[in-house]
Design a protein around this nucleic acid. Structure first.
Length: 851
RNA sequence: GCGAGAGUGGCGGAAUUGGUAGACGCGCUGGUCUUAGGAACCAGUAUCCUAUGAUGUGGGGGUUCGAGUCCCCCCUCUCGCACCA
């Protein structure tokens, strides 16, 4: 046996062939049915990690499987190339973000090619290419024209020391990650996309995407958060001002004993009385220091301050105090909450703390609810009390009746509220798509004329991490003349959120070289929607919702004709690994830790949690070593065999060896038998051991087909092929039945091809085929080969297994029962007892119930 | 906190969706062959045990002839929370 399996040779041979012959390029004009398969494109961090390998291996199985099934498959790859890490690299190492990014892309492309992924590389692009982002700028101008992009004030994290805006990720415990100075909120005018205009359509379509996991749809529905309720006006006492609140519980209105406003509420200034001014200022400053995400947390201590003003309850005219409260956010509803402590837990805790009155207005039918005795808010349904004319009404009807009462008096109205907020797309950063707007003192915000696009991101910038965005200091970029009036004007210096680029790249893949607009409508409409999208569960809401929204924008701008971008979605579980952190040096790579101590300072390392692999947490596993040692096929097979795709995977290399061993077994099985089976064919009739292998072959074809097609049970598909290979090794009468053996070996090679394509192409050639295995088609199974004459049934007594019987597959219920009762071990358990019932589950088991 | 998921041998996982719990693989134990074995092959491997027995799918209850699977309560872990991508 001198023809050993040598993955290095085999893999470079086939990768060269694929590079030369381009078998994965997808033509627009094809007789075949189209299939668009897409994995979420990577950020070019420089190195691929096991999460990438897993994601792209999953996608490649589907791409190759669909190609074998005869589809015209589009399977593209590109780069989500704008973003903060490139700027950080520039700040830390003085490399220009463009150079850093394009070098990373080159290195990652090489790494991806080593895995043997079947991409149409002709369609590759990076989102930082001006040929890409220029069309994003054009779409922005169209959105601006239609009022779908607008400007409004919004708060950012500001570091006074660095004079710069910080991303949430750059804020640690309320402090700047670089200088550890306290971060403050700062109000800036920023661009927003009106995603709220599409809230209802985005919500409705969550019921029309059967190919999406229910949990993702559920998260998106909750994110949109449509709720029906009532907007109510509370007049401010001794003033003409009104405080608007949104509530889903107008039925509790009579129980509103105070009002809570967000500290950011615009009315705060006019409401605060002079004697409360100082206390309120201190309070607002304290709340500003609190993390936004924690503000609504139930754990957070509820704090508040009296403004000195009162407002009037529109139901009963009662005068109630107006407070500011840390748990009320300006971003949701109206930024004001009518506080009903008896029936809302947060209000209850707040009222207890500040000794505010608690009044029950709903109680369960027939039970008296005494406010003084409440230990928590009562939020169940019930009947109204203390509510004047509405007493005795059940609370569901009271919602309607009170809304109508308020409406009739012009002080309230039924409304729909969404949790979803408009999408803020302005970033005060350099490495992103320039927003194509010019500010003129006379004309205001003027769009850059279409013929002047693209607004090219200048390359001659200095990045320091201080003093705000470099574009804001780049005079040659900033200074322009107003396209409308010709006077001196200034460019917008903010760039887009990188989520904008990732919201339409899948559409651009259909026509990446098109020069007359963002999309070639013919290509877009042929390929879209994406038939199968694959990516991490961490994108369940934001990216996937933005992409859905942007698709509807493109549709409404007449650029394509689909309503939704992704017909089927597979959310891959994360590849996780334990993190390690030094109190002084932050996250550490595994090689920086020795005996639980940081090698830089010898301090004890905090053992972190198991988290998703990310460069910033330094818990990334680099697959290159694995590929060097075992080859790409083994790395692919292992990442697919280790767990089902949806499941999170805690990284552990145990088992790689087994996958390599298996590929060696496959190799030898073909190699050792290739002469014997050279021209063999399956005979018309097979019997005995040969018939068992013949059946096993067809069972495996069926099992793998079912597991791969639509259900992604790759781990069990691979297990099934392993069983078939075990059966091939156990097959003793190969010499007498070379045809049956050939059939089994060819099935193994075909079925494995989507998983481990290099070795399969090589073995397919060795089996004497001229055509590639991928072009040879997916094997089909013969139903008649699956049939067995005899089946084994389990016999239970009172639900416990007591024996097994072999019966003819065609046996009648009566004879099965008789045989089960006669089984010797079963006899022991039913002797002397009354048989009450016999349950026969066809093809499975018999349960004898005795008493 | 809110929203969404997950929990099965020493380990990764399987279970036809209410019907034999532990497929397949790793690891481990013993053996064959070999100058050698970190190669290959064969046998064994949930736990307790004298077992044709009992127990067993994060914990506790329930429904059922039968529950890993369905229902209720609890625990632990993971993801997202709007400027990481």
């Amino acid at each position: 046996m001198d023809n050993h399996y040598n993955p290095k040779d085999v893999e470079s041979k086939w990768q060269n062939i694929w590079q030369e012959n381009k078998p994965f390029c997808a033509p627009l004009d094809s007789e075949k049915e189209k299939y668009y398969l897409l994995e979420m494109f990577p950020y070019p961090s420089g190195r691929i990690h096991m999460g990438h390998v897993r994601n792209y291996a999953i996608g490649d199985v589907v791409a190759r499987f669909k190609r074998m099934q005869g589809f015209n498959v589009l399977h593209p790859m590109g780069w989500d190339a704008f973003g903060m890490p490139a700027e950080n690299a520039a700040i830390e190492h003085g490399i220009h973000p463009a150079k850093w990014t394009y070098e990373n892309i080159d290195s990652m492309r090489q790494q991806l090619k080593r895995i043997g992924l079947s991409y149409d590389w002709e369609r590759e692009f990076a989102t930082c290419d001006a040929d890409y982002y220029r069309w994003e700028q054009l779409v922005f101008l169209k959105m601006f024209e239609k009022g779908l992009a607008y400007k409004k004030g919004s708060s950012v994290n500001w570091c006074e020391d660095c004079q710069t805006v910080l991303a949430n990720e750059q804020v640690e415990d309320g402090c700047c990650w670089r200088c550890h100075n306290q971060v403050q909120p700062k109000e800036l005018e920023q661009w927003f996309f009106k995603i709220t205009n599409y809230a209802d359509e985005l919500l409705e379509w969550t019921n029309k995407l059967p190919g999406w996991p229910e949990r993702v749809l559920s998260m998106q529905r909750n994110w949109i958060g449509k709720s029906y309720g009532c907007e109510i006006d509370f007049e401010v006492a001794d003033s003409s001002e009104k405080i608007k609140v949104f509530t889903t519980r107008p039925d509790t209105l009579a129980g509103a004993t105070f009002m809570s406003l967000a500290p950011e509420h615009p009315l705060v200034k006019s409401l605060v009385t002079s004697d409360q001014q100082q206390a309120v200022n201190d309070f607002i400053a304290a709340v500003e220091r609190q993390d936004k995400a924690d503000r609504t947390s139930g754990d957070l201590e509820k704090i508040g301050i009296f403004t000195g003003s009162y407002c009037l309850n529109p139901l009963n005219g009662e005068k109630i105090p107006v407070f500011l409260a840390n748990f009320v956010l300006m971003g949701y509803g109206t930024g004001a909450v009518m506080a009903v402590p008896a029936h809302d837990q947060r209000d209850f805790e707040f009222a207890k703390k500040y000794q505010l009155p608690i009044r029950t207005v709903i109680q369960p039918q027939g039970v008296e609810l005494v406010a003084d005795q409440l230990t928590e808010a009562f939020s169940d349904p019930g009947v109204l009390i203390n509510s004047g004319q509405f007493d005795g009404v059940d609370n569901e009807s009271a919602k309607e009746q009170i809304a109508a009462f308020l409406d009739a008096r012009g002080v309230g109205r039924k409304t729909v509220n969404y949790r979803l907020r408009d999408w803020g797309v302005s970033r005060q950063r350099y490495w992103g798509t320039p927003i194509p707007i010019i500010y003129c003192d006379s004309c205001g915000a003027v769009p850059v004329p279409e013929e002047d696009l693209p607004v090219i991101l200048p390359t001659d910038v200095e990045l320091t991490g201080e003093g705000g965005s470099p574009l804001a200091r780049h005079e040659a970029f900033l200074q322009v003349t107003c396209p409308k009036c010709g006077k001196q004007a200034k460019r917008e210096s903010d760039t887009f959120d990188t989520f904008v680029e990732s919201s339409w790249y899948f559409a651009r893949y259909t026509c990446p070289h098109y020069t007359d607009g963002p999309l070639d409508k013919k290509a877009a409409n042929y390929w879209l929607p994406v038939d199968q999208y694959i990516g991490g569960i961490e994108h369940a809401v934001m990216h996937l919702l933005y992409a859905r929204f942007y698709t509807k924008i493109l549709r409404d701008l007449g650029l394509l004709d689909v309503d939704e971008p992704f017909t089927n979605l597979l959310t891959q579980g994360m590849v996780c690994k334990e993190t390690q952190r030094c109190p002084e040096h932050g996250w550490l790579y595994p090689e920086q830790v020795e005996d639980g101590k940081c090698t830089l300072c010898q301090q004890l390392v905090e053992l972190g949690r198991t988290e998703k692999m990310s460069k910033s947490k330094k818990n990334v596993i680099d697959p290159n070593q694995l590929i060097d040692q075992y080859g790409a096929d083994t790395a692919r097979l292992f990442s697919l065999f280790a767990a089902p795709p949806e499941k999170d995977l805690e990284w552990n290399e145990q088992g790689v060896e087994g996958c390599y061993r298996f590929l060696n077994r496959v190799w030898r099985a073909v190699d050792e038998n290739s002469e014997l089976i050279a021209a063999a064919q399956v005979p018309a009739t097979v019997s005995g051991e040969a018939s068992d292998l013949h059946r096993k072959t067809h069972q495996t074809i069926k099992k793998v087909s079912d597991d791969v097609d639509g259900s992604f049970h790759f781990n069990t598909a691979i297990a099934a092929v392993m069983e078939l290979v075990n059966a091939i090794y156990a097959f003793k009468s190969a010499k007498e039945n070379p045809g049956v053996l050939r059939e089994a070996l060819e099935a193994v090679v075909c079925l494995l091809n989507p998983f481990v394509p290099h070795i399969c192409e090589e073995l397919w050639q060795q089996l004497g085929h001229q055509q590639s295995v991928e072009a040879s088609g997916w094997p089909t199974w013969d139903e008649s080969a699956l049939v067995t004459d005899e089946i084994t049934l389990v016999v239970q007594v009172n639900g416990k297994v007591r024996g097994k019987i072999d019966v003819a597959a065609t046996a009648e219920k009566q004879s099965i029962e008789a045989e089960a009762l006669a089984e010797s071990n079963v006899q022991r358990f039913i002797a002397g007892k009354e048989v009450r019932k016999i349950i026969v589950v066809p093809g499975r088991l018999i349960n004898i119930v005795v008493g």
